[in-house]
C-alpha cells in the first residue's frame, strides 16, 4: 500500500468532475438519518459506502452496500457501516448506476515514459483479464479514440445485452478529462477509476481514487 496522501473517493470524483469526467451523483453524510434524506434526494436504489482517505479498498472491507430501496434499508445499512468503520467515519450516499459493463481507466507515472493513461476492461476481474491499453500523455483525441480499438476484446464497447453501444465520444472525453487533470494538477501522482460503468451507453465513474505526490 502506498503511503502517499490520497483524496477520498468523494473528493477524487469532485476533482475529476471538474475536468469533465462524468461521475455518479452522490453526497457525503455523517449520520443514518442524513443518509436517509440524501438517498431520497438522489433516488433509490441507493448505494452506501464507508468514506475516508484511509479507506481504499472498500469492497474487500465489506464497506459497500448496494441496491438499497426504501428508508428502512438505508437506515439499517448506514448503522451497520458506521459501526464497522473507524471513529469519525462518514458515509457516501450515491445513485446506483445501472449497466452491465464495467470499464477501468487511470493515469500512472511510468519511470521510462512519464505520465501514461490506461483504459480497459474493469471491475473485479480487471487484473486477472488484464485487457488494458496504454497511451503516453499528452495524447490527442484521435489517439485516444484509436486506443479503444486496441483492446483484446473491443466488442465490449459495441451493443451488449440489450444496451446500446458505448458512446465513443463520451468515452474519449472522459479519458481526455483524466489527461487534463494530470496536466493541470502537478500534485496529482496517479488516478484510478474502477469501475467506470457504462450506463445507457455513457461512461460514469462509480469509484475513483486520486493519489497525490
Amino acid at each position: 500500500m502506498s503511503d502517499k496522501p490520497a483524496l477520498s473517493e468523494h473528493d477524487s470524483k469532485l476533482l475529476l468532475a471538474g475536468f469533465g469526467v462524468p461521475v455518479s451523483r452522490e453526497k457525503v453524510v455523517a449520520t443514518p438519518s442524513e443518509a436517509v434524506a440524501a438517498a431520497r434526494e438522489i433516488g433509490h436504489p441507493t448505494v452506501l459506502k464507508l468514506c475516508g482517505a484511509a479507506i481504499m479498498h472498500k469492497t474487500e472491507l465489506g464497506g459497500v452496500k448496494l441496491g438499497l430501496v426504501g428508508d428502512e434499508a438505508v437506515q439499517t445499512a448506514a448503522n451497520e457501516l458506521l459501526n464497522k468503520g473507524p471513529d469519525g467515519a462518514e458515509l457516501l450516499v450515491a445513485e446506483q448506476v445501472s449497466g452491465s459493463r464495467e470499464l477501468i481507466a487511470g493515469v500512472t507515472m511510468d519511470p521510462q515514459f512519464g505520465s501514461t493513461l490506461m483504459f480497459g476492461v474493469g471491475g473485479i476481474f480487471a487484473e486477472v483479464l488484464a485487457d488494458v491499453v496504454f497511451r503516453l500523455l499528452p495524447a490527442t483525441d484521435e489517439e485516444l479514440d484509436a486506443m479503444l480499438d486496441d483492446l483484446a476484446n473491443p466488442h465490449i464497447l459495441g451493443e451488449f445485452r440489450g444496451e446500446p453501444a458505448v458512446d465513443r465520444q463520451a468515452l474519449v472525453n472522459a479519458l481526455s478529462g483524466l489527461a487534463a487533470c494530470v496536466a493541470e494538477r502537478s500534485d496529482v501522482e496517479s488516478i484510478d477509476i474502477n469501475p467506470l460503468i457504462v450506463s445507457d451507453g455513457l461512461p460514469i465513474a462509480v469509484d475513483a481514487l486520486v493519489v497525490l505526490q
Binding site: S2, Q112, M118, S190, D192, V211
Partner: peptide, 18 residues
C-alpha cells in the same frame, strides 16, 4: 502498487501502447 492502474502498468504494456 496500491492502484489498479499501477499494478497493470507493466513495462511491456506501456511500451506496447507507446
Amino acid at each position: 502498487a496500491a492502484s489498479h492502474t499501477g499494478s497493470l502498468a507493466t513495462n511491456d504494456r506501456v511500451f506496447d501502447g507507446m
